[in-house]
């Protein structure tokens, strides 16, 4: 996954078949226990999948573009050990603007990691996703302006702090 251009290709295999089988069994058991709630669950499943598919397409295109245009050397410059403040700004901004559930981004992020992006920046990216620019007005409506501003600033600081801690832990291993 996400290996750089010219790297050895791994054989194709589905990941998570056992987990999927387990979830299918769960649905079977749930259906026997409460049919109407299970049907509601299936409707929820279809709805979530419908909203997820466009995001997965965007992530796939982004992954292809990264594989095509970003070589490990230039990626290391922007997101590697020597990326400095620029690396933090890229990681935090990317986290804030990224949409959809976290797991939709796993393949792309692992691709970046395999190309040399350091773990601290990836952890900062994941935590910065808690800031949702499009939803800020809604957050203000529910919790007030003060809470929204304080939470947003502290979340970004915490994302950066986690990244720093992770980098130190990685360096000490």
């Amino acid at each position: 996954m996400g290996a750089g251009q010219g790297s050895k290709q791994q054989p194709f295999r589905f990941r998570g078949l056992k987990l999927l089988g387990f979830v299918v069994l769960l649905y079977g058991a749930a259906y026997l226990w409460d049919t109407s709630r299970t049907i509601k669950s299936l409707e929820g499943f279809v709805h979530v999948l419908g909203t997820l598919i466009p995001i997965l397409i965007v992530v796939t295109v982004l992954t292809a573009l990264i594989n095509l245009f970003i070589d490990p050397k230039s990626l290391a410059k922007h997101l590697g050990g020597e990326s400095g403040v620029k690396g933090w700004v890229i990681a935090l901004s990317a986290g804030v603007v990224s949409h959809g559930p976290m797991y939709a981004w796993y393949p792309m992020i692992q691709g970046l990691r395999e190309k040399g992006a350091r773990d601290g920046l990836l952890i900062a990216f994941f935590y910065a996703r808690a800031v949702k620019v499009a939803l800020l007005p809604m957050m203000v409506a529910y919790f007030g302006l003060t809470f929204t501003v304080v939470l947003t600033v502290l979340t970004l600081l915490a994302a950066w702090g986690q990244g720093v801690v992770m980098d130190r832990m990685s360096a000490s291993v």
Partner: peptide, 25 residues
């Protein structure tokens, strides 16, 4: 990239399935 994403399809379907169960129950 599509092949990589497809290899994850069972995992993604399983997670979405769990999300559905959570919403239903």
């Amino acid at each position: 990239a599509t092949k990589n994403m497809l290899s994850m399809a069972p995992m993604i379907l399983a997670i979405v399935g769990l999300v559905g169960l959570f919403q239903g129950f």
